[in-house]
Amino acid sequence: MEIVENGIDAVKKAKQTLYAVIILDCQMPEMSRLEATLAIRKAGINRNTPIIGLTAMPASLLEDEWVVAGIDSYVTKPLEGREFVDTVYRLACGDKEND
């Protein structure tokens, strides 16, 4: 797992490397998650990579972001261990198996 600290670095990384899953925190300096998601989607290689948003609020409140940017899933903080791992696993592997 590679870790970056802000949206800009995430976009930079996402231009170079193909990831199975990208996890974005809700509040990041420099660039909002919505902007970062849109940029990653535009950047090319990770166009179809599942993006998981970490959020402290109910996912239903993030509808704008969800609809506009197409974030694939949200995991609500506090992270619940199994749910989180399952979500990452499902998005990283599960969806591909179904293709």
Binding site: I3, D9, V21, L24, A36, V88
Partner: peptide
């Protein structure tokens, strides 16, 4: 699994 995490 290659994962990218952006978290400040």
């Amino acid at each position: 699994i290659p994962i990218l995490l952006a978290e400040d």
